[in-house]
Protein backbone atom coordinates (compact mmCIF):
# COMPACT_ATOMS: atom_id res chain seq x y z
CA UNK A 1 0.00 0.00 0.00
CA UNK A 2 2.72 2.41 0.96
CA UNK A 3 4.40 1.58 -2.27
CA UNK A 4 1.29 2.50 -4.19
CA UNK A 5 1.24 6.03 -2.79
CA UNK A 6 4.94 6.42 -3.34
CA UNK A 7 4.55 5.37 -6.94
CA UNK A 8 1.56 7.58 -7.49
CA UNK A 9 3.38 10.54 -6.06
CA UNK A 10 6.42 9.85 -8.18
CA UNK A 11 4.22 9.49 -11.25
CA UNK A 12 2.63 12.89 -10.58
CA UNK A 13 5.94 14.50 -9.76
CA UNK A 14 7.46 13.37 -13.03
CA UNK A 15 4.65 15.03 -14.91
CA UNK A 16 3.87 18.08 -12.72
CA UNK A 17 7.28 18.81 -11.26
CA UNK A 18 5.93 18.94 -7.71
CA UNK A 19 9.34 18.66 -6.16
CA UNK A 20 10.66 21.52 -8.24
CA UNK A 21 7.64 23.61 -7.27
CA UNK A 22 8.24 22.78 -3.63
CA UNK A 23 11.86 23.81 -3.84
CA UNK A 24 11.22 27.00 -5.77
CA UNK A 25 8.10 28.19 -4.00
CA UNK A 26 8.23 26.94 -0.45
CA UNK A 27 11.69 25.74 0.53
CA UNK A 28 13.31 29.13 0.07
CA UNK A 29 15.64 30.98 2.41
CA UNK A 30 14.34 34.29 3.68
CA UNK A 31 15.81 37.08 5.76
CA UNK A 32 14.61 37.16 9.37
CA UNK A 33 11.07 38.42 9.26
CA UNK A 34 8.48 39.51 11.78
CA UNK A 35 4.74 40.16 11.91
CA UNK A 36 4.99 43.15 9.60
CA UNK A 37 5.92 40.73 6.82
CA UNK A 38 2.59 38.93 7.09
CA UNK A 39 0.58 41.86 5.76
CA UNK A 40 1.12 41.08 2.08
CA UNK A 41 -0.10 37.53 2.44
CA UNK A 42 -2.90 38.82 4.67
CA UNK A 43 -3.97 41.09 1.77
CA UNK A 44 -3.90 38.05 -0.48
CA UNK A 45 -5.96 36.03 1.98
CA UNK A 46 -8.54 38.80 2.28
CA UNK A 47 -8.68 39.14 -1.50
CA UNK A 48 -9.38 35.43 -1.92
CA UNK A 49 -11.94 35.57 0.86
CA UNK A 50 -13.68 38.44 -0.93
CA UNK A 51 -13.66 36.43 -4.14
CA UNK A 52 -15.19 33.40 -2.42
CA UNK A 53 -17.88 35.32 -0.52
CA UNK A 54 -18.50 37.55 -3.55
CA UNK A 55 -19.20 34.57 -5.81
CA UNK A 56 -21.74 33.37 -3.28
CA UNK A 57 -23.43 36.78 -3.20
CA UNK A 58 -23.79 36.93 -6.99
CA UNK A 59 -25.91 33.81 -6.82
CA UNK A 60 -28.71 35.84 -5.24
CA UNK A 61 -27.85 39.42 -6.07
CA UNK A 62 -29.70 41.15 -8.90
CA UNK A 63 -28.09 44.29 -10.35
CA UNK A 64 -31.18 46.32 -11.18
CA UNK A 65 -32.54 49.34 -9.32
CA UNK A 66 -35.86 47.60 -8.78
CA UNK A 67 -34.45 44.43 -7.28
CA UNK A 68 -30.93 45.11 -5.98
CA UNK A 69 -32.08 46.29 -2.58
CA UNK A 70 -34.63 43.53 -2.16
CA UNK A 71 -32.21 40.84 -3.28
CA UNK A 72 -29.82 41.99 -0.54
CA UNK A 73 -32.67 41.93 1.99
CA UNK A 74 -33.40 38.43 0.79
CA UNK A 75 -29.80 37.38 1.33
CA UNK A 76 -29.80 38.91 4.81
CA UNK A 77 -33.14 37.50 5.96
CA UNK A 78 -34.00 34.38 4.02
CA UNK A 79 -30.87 32.65 2.74
CA UNK A 80 -29.26 30.30 5.27
CA UNK A 81 -26.13 32.04 6.59
CA UNK A 82 -26.60 34.77 3.99
CA UNK A 83 -26.12 37.37 6.72
CA UNK A 84 -22.79 35.81 7.66
CA UNK A 85 -21.48 35.71 4.11
CA UNK A 86 -22.58 39.27 3.41
CA UNK A 87 -21.21 40.40 6.76
CA UNK A 88 -17.83 38.87 5.96
CA UNK A 89 -17.81 40.41 2.49
CA UNK A 90 -18.80 43.80 3.89
CA UNK A 91 -16.27 43.91 6.70
CA UNK A 92 -13.67 42.09 4.63
CA UNK A 93 -13.72 44.96 2.14
CA UNK A 94 -12.95 47.50 4.86
CA UNK A 95 -10.35 45.29 6.46
CA UNK A 96 -8.68 44.63 3.12
CA UNK A 97 -8.33 48.35 2.39
CA UNK A 98 -6.86 48.84 5.85
CA UNK A 99 -4.46 45.91 5.56
CA UNK A 100 -3.33 46.85 2.04
CA UNK A 101 -2.62 50.42 3.18
CA UNK A 102 -0.64 49.25 6.19
CA UNK A 103 1.22 46.77 3.95
CA UNK A 104 2.13 49.66 1.66
CA UNK A 105 3.25 51.80 4.58
CA UNK A 106 5.42 48.95 5.87
CA UNK A 107 7.17 48.53 2.49
CA UNK A 108 7.57 52.30 2.39
CA UNK A 109 9.09 52.53 5.86
CA UNK A 110 11.54 49.68 5.25
CA UNK A 111 12.37 51.18 1.82
CA UNK A 112 11.60 47.85 0.17
CA UNK A 113 10.68 49.70 -3.02
CA UNK A 114 14.33 50.33 -3.83
CA UNK A 115 16.57 48.37 -6.18
CA UNK A 116 15.79 45.67 -7.26
CA UNK A 117 12.12 45.85 -6.18
CA UNK A 118 10.95 48.99 -8.01
CA UNK A 119 8.48 47.09 -10.16
CA UNK A 120 7.03 45.28 -7.15
CA UNK A 121 6.12 48.70 -5.76
CA UNK A 122 4.76 49.91 -9.10
CA UNK A 123 2.50 46.89 -9.39
CA UNK A 124 1.59 47.41 -5.74
CA UNK A 125 0.31 50.93 -6.39
CA UNK A 126 -1.85 49.45 -9.15
CA UNK A 127 -3.21 46.96 -6.62
CA UNK A 128 -3.94 49.74 -4.12
CA UNK A 129 -5.91 51.71 -6.70
CA UNK A 130 -7.77 48.57 -7.77
CA UNK A 131 -8.60 47.75 -4.15
CA UNK A 132 -10.03 51.23 -3.66
CA UNK A 133 -11.87 50.85 -6.97
CA UNK A 134 -13.39 47.61 -5.72
CA UNK A 135 -14.55 49.44 -2.60
CA UNK A 136 -16.03 52.30 -4.62
CA UNK A 137 -17.89 50.10 -7.11
CA UNK A 138 -19.03 47.61 -4.48
CA UNK A 139 -20.48 50.33 -2.28
CA UNK A 140 -23.16 51.20 -4.85
CA UNK A 141 -24.40 47.65 -5.37
CA UNK A 142 -26.83 47.43 -2.39
CA UNK A 143 -28.59 50.44 -3.96
CA UNK A 144 -29.50 52.04 -0.67
CA UNK A 145 -29.71 55.74 0.10
CA UNK A 146 -26.20 56.03 1.50
CA UNK A 147 -24.70 54.27 -1.52
CA UNK A 148 -26.77 56.14 -4.05
CA UNK A 149 -25.91 59.59 -2.77
CA UNK A 150 -22.28 58.83 -1.98
CA UNK A 151 -21.82 57.56 -5.52
CA UNK A 152 -23.62 60.58 -6.92
CA UNK A 153 -21.13 62.83 -5.16
CA UNK A 154 -18.19 60.52 -5.89
CA UNK A 155 -18.82 60.52 -9.62
CA UNK A 156 -19.41 64.27 -9.48
CA UNK A 157 -15.93 64.67 -8.07
CA UNK A 158 -14.50 62.63 -10.92
CA UNK A 159 -16.51 64.85 -13.25
CA UNK A 160 -14.78 68.01 -12.05
CA UNK A 161 -11.52 67.13 -13.81
CA UNK A 162 -10.84 69.88 -16.35
CA UNK A 163 -11.61 69.14 -20.03
CA UNK A 164 -12.28 65.39 -19.76
CA UNK A 165 -14.41 65.54 -16.59
CA UNK A 166 -17.73 65.45 -18.43
CA UNK A 167 -16.56 62.39 -20.36
CA UNK A 168 -15.42 60.56 -17.21
CA UNK A 169 -18.69 61.36 -15.49
CA UNK A 170 -20.75 59.98 -18.36
CA UNK A 171 -18.52 56.96 -18.75
CA UNK A 172 -18.91 56.13 -15.04
CA UNK A 173 -22.63 56.78 -14.88
CA UNK A 174 -23.56 55.62 -18.35
CA UNK A 175 -25.48 58.86 -18.82
CA UNK A 176 -25.93 62.21 -17.11
CA UNK A 177 -27.52 60.71 -13.99
CA UNK A 178 -27.21 57.64 -11.85
CA UNK A 179 -29.47 55.03 -13.39
CA UNK A 180 -29.94 51.35 -14.05
CA UNK A 181 -27.01 51.65 -16.46
CA UNK A 182 -24.72 52.92 -13.70
CA UNK A 183 -25.60 49.99 -11.51
CA UNK A 184 -25.01 47.58 -14.38
CA UNK A 185 -21.63 49.18 -15.09
CA UNK A 186 -20.49 49.20 -11.50
CA UNK A 187 -21.56 45.59 -11.19
CA UNK A 188 -19.58 44.58 -14.28
CA UNK A 189 -16.53 46.47 -12.99
CA UNK A 190 -16.90 45.02 -9.51
CA UNK A 191 -17.24 41.37 -10.44
CA UNK A 192 -15.38 41.08 -13.75
CA UNK A 193 -13.13 43.91 -14.84
CA UNK A 194 -11.41 44.92 -11.61
CA UNK A 195 -11.00 41.38 -10.20
CA UNK A 196 -9.52 40.19 -13.51
CA UNK A 197 -6.99 43.03 -13.39
CA UNK A 198 -6.29 42.27 -9.75
CA UNK A 199 -5.62 38.60 -10.42
CA UNK A 200 -3.18 39.59 -13.16
CA UNK A 201 -1.38 42.17 -11.04
CA UNK A 202 -1.28 39.94 -7.96
CA UNK A 203 0.28 37.21 -10.10
CA UNK A 204 2.94 39.64 -11.28
CA UNK A 205 3.44 40.98 -7.74
CA UNK A 206 3.98 37.48 -6.37
CA UNK A 207 6.29 36.49 -9.20
CA UNK A 208 8.46 39.52 -8.48
CA UNK A 209 8.52 38.78 -4.76
CA UNK A 210 9.64 35.20 -5.34
CA UNK A 211 12.15 36.34 -7.92
CA UNK A 212 13.83 38.91 -5.67
CA UNK A 213 13.02 37.41 -2.27
CA UNK A 214 11.59 39.37 0.59
CA UNK A 215 13.75 42.36 1.52
CA UNK A 216 15.50 42.34 4.88
CA UNK A 217 14.87 44.94 7.55
CA UNK A 218 17.49 47.68 7.01
CA UNK A 219 20.27 48.26 9.53
CA UNK A 220 22.95 50.94 9.82
CA UNK A 221 24.91 49.39 6.92
CA UNK A 222 22.11 49.93 4.40
Amino acid sequence: MQNFWKNALQWLDERLGLNELYQNLLDRPEPLGNWWNTLGSASLFLFLLQVATGIFLTVYYNPSPDHAYDSIQYIMNEVAFGWLIRGIHHWGASLMVLVVIIHMLRTFVTASYKYPRELTWLVGVGLLLLTLGMGFTGYLLPWHQMAYWATTVGTQIAGSVPFIGEFILRALRGGPDLSALTLQRFFAAHIWILPALMFALIGLHLYLIIKHGESHFPDKED
Binding site: H90, W91, S94, G135, H144, Q145, Y148, A150
Partner: peptide, 26 residues
Protein backbone atom coordinates in the same frame (compact mmCIF):
# COMPACT_ATOMS: atom_id res chain seq x y z
CA UNK B 1 -20.33 40.00 10.88
CA UNK B 2 -22.06 38.34 13.82
CA UNK B 3 -22.03 41.02 16.48
CA UNK B 4 -21.87 44.27 14.58
CA UNK B 5 -23.62 43.21 11.38
CA UNK B 6 -24.09 45.38 8.34
CA UNK B 7 -25.57 48.79 8.93
CA UNK B 8 -28.27 49.25 6.35
CA UNK B 9 -29.90 52.36 5.10
CA UNK B 10 -33.25 52.61 3.30
CA UNK B 11 -33.61 51.85 -0.39
CA UNK B 12 -32.17 54.40 -2.81
CA UNK B 13 -34.57 57.23 -3.51
CA UNK B 14 -33.47 59.61 -6.27
CA UNK B 15 -36.20 62.11 -5.30
CA UNK B 16 -35.01 62.47 -1.70
CA UNK B 17 -32.24 65.01 -2.26
CA UNK B 18 -32.15 65.90 1.42
CA UNK B 19 -30.09 62.78 2.10
CA UNK B 20 -26.59 63.60 3.31
CA UNK B 21 -24.15 61.44 1.36
CA UNK B 22 -21.53 59.57 3.30
CA UNK B 23 -18.85 57.57 1.51
CA UNK B 24 -17.04 54.53 2.86
CA UNK B 25 -14.74 55.43 5.73
CA UNK B 26 -11.59 55.22 3.64
Amino acid sequence: ATFVGVHDSPKADPSDTSYIPRPEWY
